[in-house]
Nucleic acid binder design. Sequence first.
DNA 1: TAGGTAAAGTGACCGTGGTCAATATAAAAT
DNA 2: ATTTTATATTGACCACGGTCACTTTACCTA
Lengths: 192, 192
Amino acid sequence: MIKPKQKRTLETRAKLIAQAKACIQEAGYEALRVEDVVAGAGVAKGTFFAHFRDKDALMEILIGAEMDALLDQAAAGAGPTDVEQIISRLHPLHSFVTCERYVFDLILRYSGAAAVAEIGPIAMTFGRYIELVTGWMPLGDYRKDVSADLLAEGVQAFAVQAMALQFCALHQTQRFDKRFARYLKAWLAPVS
Amino acid sequence: MIKPKQKRTLETRAKLIAQAKACIQEAGYEALRVEDVVAGAGVAKGTFFAHFRDKDALMEILIGAEMDALLDQAAAGAGPTDVEQIISRLHPLHSFVTCERYVFDLILRYSGAAAVAEIGPIAMTFGRYIELVTGWMPLGDYRKDVSADLLAEGVQAFAVQAMALQFCALHQTQRFDKRFARYLKAWLAPVS
DNA sequence: TAGGTAAAGTGACCGTGGTCAATATAAAAT
DNA sequence: ATTTTATATTGACCACGGTCACTTTACCTA
C-alpha cells in the first residue's frame, strides 16, 4: 500500500473507498459489509483484501480521516483559554467518536499502536490530540505543578472515561459535556 | 437463565463452563472457540446458545468472576494509605485486565451497561472498583477539594489510560505501575 | 403407569470475514 | 511485435459465530 505503481490500483482503491463511504452514509459504520462494498465497487472479494489488511483497516482509514479533519478544525484559530472553551472546541470530535458504539469501541481498540511500524491513522490522532491539548495548557489558568504533557494525557483519559459513561444507561443522568467539565475542573484546577 | 429448574440444565451449564475454563487454561481467552467448548462438553452447538446469549456472554461470566475474586482480594484487610499502596493493592487486578489484549478490549466493551436490566458481571466490577477506591480516599493525605467519589472515578480513568498505553509499543518505555503512579500522584495530590 | 406438556437439546444451515492457488493484465526486456 | 516478469484480480473455499424447526427428555397429573 506504500507506493502503488499502477494507475489501475489507485482506481480500484478509490472505488472501494468511495463505495464504503456510500454504504456508511446509508446505514452507518456498524452495518458496513465487505460484500456490499465489493459488489458496489464491481470487484471481487479478494481484491478488497489485497488493498486492506482486513475490514478494520478500512475502518481505520475512514474513521481516522474523519477524526483528522475534526482535529484540524479544533486546532484552527486561537487556542481555548478555559475549561469551557476546551470542551466546546473538542465537542465535534468527541461527538463523532461517540456517534456509534461500534465506532467508539473500534477507536479505542486502535488508539494504541502495537509497534512503531504499525502506527495507524487512529493511533496518530491520539498523538495529535495530546499535542493539541498540550499546546493549550499555557493559555489558561491551570495548575503549573505538573507538565503540560501530563495534563494533556489526563484530559484524554477523562475524555475517554466520560465518553464510555455516555454509553452507559446507569450514568446517563449526566450529559457528556457536563461530566467532562466536572472532571477537567478538578484535574486542571490551579493548586492554590 | 434466572431460575433453571431441571437438574440437567445445571449440569450442562456446569459442563460448558468447566470445558471453557479448560480451553482457556490451555490456549488463553482469545483462542477460545465455541465449537471446541461444545465438543469437549459433549453437547450440540445450539445448546451453548441456549445457555449463553453469545460467546461474549460466557466470556463476561468467566472474566467477571476472575475480576470479582481479585477485587475481593484487593478489598481484604485495612485499606491502603498512600498512592504506592493503592497501586500495589490493585496490581493483581490490573495485571489480569491486561493479561491479553483481547481480554482488555472485551472488558472495556462491557464496562458500561446499556440498560439497568443489562448490568453484566463486568459492569458490576467497574462499580465495585469505584466503591472500593472511594472507601480508600479518607485513609490517605489526598486532596479534599473534590468528593471521594470523583477522585475514585479519576483513579479508574487513569488506570484505564495507563493500561491502554501498556499495549502501545510507543509508550512502553514506562512500565504500567510507574505511569499509573505518575498519574495518581498528580491527581490525588493535596491542594496545599 | 400412561399420557400430556413444557423445557432442553440437536444439528443442518446461514452470514460474513478472510485465504489462496490460479488467472489476467500491465510494464519491462528482447 | 513478442516474450518475460511483476503486479493486480479473481472466486471457490474455509473458519467460526450464531439460528431455528424439529426431536428428545424430564416432570406433572389423572
